[in-house]
C-alpha cells in the first residue's frame, strides 16, 4: 500500500514539534542515514550539491548542528531563539509503497532578545519507509526570502 497523506503528515508534524521544543537528539533519529537537510538560496534549482546553500547537511553536519545548539558555546544560540512553526497546505506530490514526496507550507515565528522575526517557506519532504518506520530522506526548506538579506538563524528551520 502506498504511503498515505496521514502517515506523512504525522511524521513531519512530529518533526516540527521536536524542533520547536528543542528535542534535537530525537530529531536526528527521524532522518535516514544518507538523509539530507537542505536550505537552498536559489529558489529554482534542484541541483543543490554544486551550488551555494544556507545549509546542506548530511548526517555528520546535522549532528554537529545539534551539538552546536545544545553545547551552550555558541553566543548566538545561548540561549537559543524560541520558535513556533505551523505546517499546513499539505499536498502529496508522489507516493508509492516505499517512498513519497510531500509538499507543504511552513510559517515560523522566532523570538530572541526581544525581537520577533518571521520566516515563510515552502518545504518539500522526501520520505522513505524503512524497517524502523517512516523516515525523512530529504527535507528542502525553500524560504520565501532566500535571495534577500537574512538575519542570523541559529536554529533549525
Amino acid at each position: 500500500m502506498s504511503i498515505t497523506l496521514n502517515e506523512a503528515v504525522e511524521l513531519v508534524t512530529l518533526e516540527a514539534d521536536l524542533l520547536d521544543h528543542g528535542d534535537f537528539t530525537q530529531w536526528l533519529s527521524l532522518y535516514t542515514e544518507d538523509g539530507l537537510y537542505i536550505v537552498p538560496i536559489d529558489p529554482d534549482t534542484e541541483d543543490f550539491e554544486d551550488i551555494l546553500n544556507y545549509a546542506y547537511d548530511n548526517a555528520e553536519m546535522r549532528a554537529k548542528r545539534v551539538q552546536r545548539l545544545l553545547g551552550g558555546r555558541a553566543i548566538s544560540a545561548a540561549p537559543p531563539a524560541r520558535t513556533i512553526r505551523l505546517l499546513a497546505r499539505y499536498r502529496m506530490l508522489d507516493t508509492d509503497e516505499t517512498t513519497c514526496t510531500l509538499r507543504c507550507a511552513q510559517m515560523l515565528t522566532e523570538l530572541r532578545q526581544g525581537r520577533e522575526r518571521y520566516y515563510a517557506a515552502n518545504v518539500t519532504f522526501d520520505l522513505v519507509r524503512t524497517e524502523t518506520g517512516l523516515k525523512i530522506g530529504r527535507k528542502v526548506v525553500r524560504l520565501l526570502t532566500s535571495t534577500e538579506a537574512l538575519t542570523a538563524v541559529s536554529y533549525i528551520l
Binding site: 546553500n53 544556507y54 545549509a55 555558541a74 553566543i75 544560540a77 542570523a152 541559529s154 528551520l157
Partner: peptide
C-alpha cells in the same frame, strides 16, 4: 569549497551568526 563556506559563513553557518551576535 562550497561546503566549507556553508559550514562557517552565512546566516545558518557555524561562525557568522556568532559574529553577528557580537
Amino acid at each position: 569549497r562550497l561546503r566549507l563556506h556553508e559550514h562557517f559563513q552565512g546566516p545558518m553557518g557555524f561562525g557568522s551568526p556568532d559574529d553577528a551576535e557580537a
